[in-house]
Design a binder for these strands. Structure first.
Lengths: 217, 217
DNA sequence: ACCTGAACACCGTTCAAGT
DNA sequence: ACCTGAACACCGTTCAAGT
């Protein structure tokens, strides 16, 4: 407690030149975001929290949107890291990897609902395919495609374009995450075990299919 | 053109007592929303568009959030109506009904991306289960549960809790819709035929399953 | 009952000036 | 090179006053 206060004061005392203001602003923004939500996130308070004047952020970000984009970008990195760790933790079986990846996605949503919402809320604006943001989200997607290929090699996943399979799976988990944090589902985001079960259930349904016979399309 | 101008002027001329200001505000808000997005939606401009002072909306809405909630509510009604019409148009087969419902969901997303985002963006705030909003979204969900039961009766859908099946299906379509309007998918929302195909493909994957063998969970 | 106009606090953004 | 302080336009919200 006392240590935290001292550290805070030290950070604020650092005169004039803040060591790494850009990062400090992103982190402060992240704190405000998860505490009060996106609508309460404003540049002036973020600057206040970082101990600089309200004009200082404009040295590092063109405007408020640019800060939001940086925060969203950080979220994509964190999400990808979590999913990657979950896959590694799952062992060799593609099916188990898929379940763990799904759980990790949902846990991120439950831990940082405002962050996930920001990442997929259009605040960032239409992005060009070259953008870093796009690249990072693509890299999380690449993990999923890897699982699919792996499962096809193991003979446990059906043949077909692994990108299509991945896309279906991502949509399922993403929709589940969004509906969950919007309280649209009969499961409270607070109950971790129930959330895990929900992820498992949905992925299991996707693996098993819901039809009794296969339709031509 | 000239007619529109005349009508607009007539609406604005109506002196002092606006006939149905509440609805006029919701409609004006809807127009601003789809034109410029949620971040550009402000009460003062909406009031301007409705031809009243910036304080007038407070006679009908407690605050800005209440107007946003009303707009979101309208969206849930429109979405449910579209899905209902799609199901009726699909004929008797549960599988066809499911495909058409999915297409309708995705088309709504593509037609009104900002509206869908608002509906599921937490601006409305945590809602109590009794809220109208919740009830309406539940009624759209009820349509889906109906399809599932129907398919089970027809013997084309696997046995199991129809609510679980519906929840999986809704998550899949919702996630697909959100990712699509965020330009996260390799399909442009402008290409209607591609969007329909995407909906079909995902639902087909869910119906068929992706695993070659059924796992215990 | 319903709407207006002035007023207040606050935000995003800019810019000349400071170190 | 990086930050400050004043300034501007604009927004959400309130309230006494008008019809």
């Amino acid at each position: 407690m006392a240590d935290e206060v001292d550290r805070d004061r030290e950070e604020r005392r650092r005169p004039y030149h803040h060591g790494d203001l850009r990062n400090a602003l992103v982190e402060a923004g992240l704190r405000v975001l998860e505490r009060d939500g996106a609508s309460a996130l404003n540049l002036r308070e973020v600057a206040r929290m970082a101990g600089v004047s309200h004009a200082a952020p404009y040295r590092h970000f063109a405007d408020k949107q640019a800060l939001l984009a940086a925060i969203a970008d950080d979220g994509f990195n964190q999400l990808a890291a979590r999913v990657r760790a979950a896959i590694e933790h799952a062992g060799e079986q593609a099916h188990a990897q898929l379940l763990e990846a799904g759980r990790a996605y949902l846990r991120f949503a439950v831990d940082r609902p405002h962050h996930l919402r920001l990442m997929f809320s259009g605040v960032v604006g239409k992005r060009a395919p070259e953008t870093l943001l796009y690249a990072v989200s693509k890299s999380a997607f690449a993990l999923l495609v890897g699982i699919m290929r792996h499962g096809q090699d193991q003979g446990v996943f059906r043949e077909g374009d692994p990108v299509e399979l991945s896309l279906t799976c991502w949509s399922l988990m993403h929709g589940l995450a969004m509906l969950l944090i919007e309280d649209q589902l009969p499961v409270s985001p607070e109950q971790q075990a129930m959330v895990d079960d929900l992820a498992d259930m949905c992925i299991q349904r996707l693996c098993d299919g819901i039809a009794t016979v296969q339709h031509e399309i």
